[in-house]
């Protein structure tokens, strides 16, 4: 009767992830029967299946898993740091910073068509712009975090940076041409389908660092839940842990935004959904649970984005919010208890 372990819930979550992964690999504009999934991976008997799997489905599924778990972890870290259930991985303004530079990059096109052409031949340029923008805000936030010593101020400053950069983006959108605007709009809708193996390599490396830092922060994260005074009394170095929480969130959110665009909703909702299934506050269990939950939710959303019988897919952000929001509302009303 000491600490409750949640083996059953953990196994269910894990099984859910595996099922969603298999469905994700099988379903698409071309349906690959589940029975021939494993076969198709290695034998070139059915060359089309093999190509689809290795070039499209597997990278996309891996991107879902990486991005979902990273955003959910980022959201959890922010909710804990700010002791605020409304916080998400984008509260620090990183996403807006990324949007700003991507918008700036795409806007250049209206003055210099040559550059736009070059940009779209190089798949890395948008990722580069997004990460530069994210990193700029990130450095700004880190220096502010060093300066202001309380979390509420940091939260408000993050939200203000978001608001300011968003308004600059609006001005850019207002003055840009329809074609450029559409390219930018598509980027803001988020996508998990544009990452090849090379991009995946870079993404997973950065996220790995983010995950390792997050897991190393179990003790300060748990302590933050009691508030600054109690945490300090438990000999937690508050300033150092605050900076590391911001660094981890920055890496996780920044890398995902760079490669997939600003994916909404997952980071805010998954920690709550997971806590409704596994009602616990210990980050030692919460972090892995939230990672699995985030990966599952993004796999599910990607699955639902497939329009049966057509090659087109729905925009990812539309699906995450359309499907996710009612689910969260239903669960919140049912359980009546939302907290960090």
């Amino acid at each position: 009767m000491r600490q409750t372990t949640f083996w059953r819930e953990g196994i269910i979550l894990g099984a859910l992830l595996v099922v969603l992964l298999i469905l994700n690999l099988s379903i698409g504009s071309v349906r690959i029967p589940i029975s021939s999934l494993v076969n198709s991976l290695y034998s070139s008997e059915n060359g089309v299946y093999q190509t689809i799997l290795w070039h499209f489905r597997i990278p996309k599924a891996l991107t879902c898993i990486l991005a979902g778990s990273a955003l959910a972890t980022g959201g959890l870290l922010m909710q804990t740091l700010f002791r605020n259930p409304m916080a998400g991985p984008d509260v620090l303004g990183l996403t807006s910073g990324a949007s700003l530079l991507v918008a700036a990059l795409l806007l250049v096109g209206q003055f210099n068509p040559g550059i736009t052409g070059a940009i779209f031949q190089n798949p890395w340029s948008i990722a580069l712009a997004a990460s530069t923008g994210g990193a700029m805000v990130f450095i700004l936030i880190i220096s502010i975090a060093n300066y202001v010593k309380d979390n509420t101020s940091l939260l408000i400053i993050g939200l203000m940076i978001s608001a300011a950069t968003s308004s600059v983006v609006s001005v850019m959108q207002f003055t840009s041409q329809a074609d450029d605007l559409q390219v930018f709009m598509i980027w803001t809708l988020g996508s998990v389908g544009n990452t090849g193996w090379k991009e995946l390599g870079v993404l997973s490396l950065i996220l790995l660092i983010g995950f390792i830092i997050s897991y190393g922060l179990i003790k300060p994260l748990n302590s933050w839940l009691l508030g600054e005074n109690y945490a300090r009394n438990l000999t937690i170095n508050l300033n150092r842990s605050r900076i590391f929480i911001v660094i981890a969130t920055g890496l996780l959110t920044g890398a995902v935004t760079a490669f997939c665009g600003p994916i909404a909703f997952v980071g805010l909702a998954v920690p709550h959904l997971v806590r409704l299934v596994i009602p616990i506050t210990n980050h030692k269990i919460l972090i892995p649970a939230v990672m699995v939950g985030g990966a599952s939710l993004l796999l599910l959303c990607d699955l639902l984005a497939q329009i049966p019988g057509r090659t087109q897919v729905l925009p990812l952000n539309a699906v995450t919010s359309m499907i996710g929001a009612p689910v969260v509302i239903w669960m919140v009303i049912k359980s009546k208890r939302i907290s960090v």
Partner: peptide, 19 residues
Amino acid sequence: DRINSALMTVYDLITYGRY
């Protein structure tokens, strides 16, 4: 100071004493 973590168990809260 108020503790806002509604889902924390009594045992977990006492555990903090050992942190």
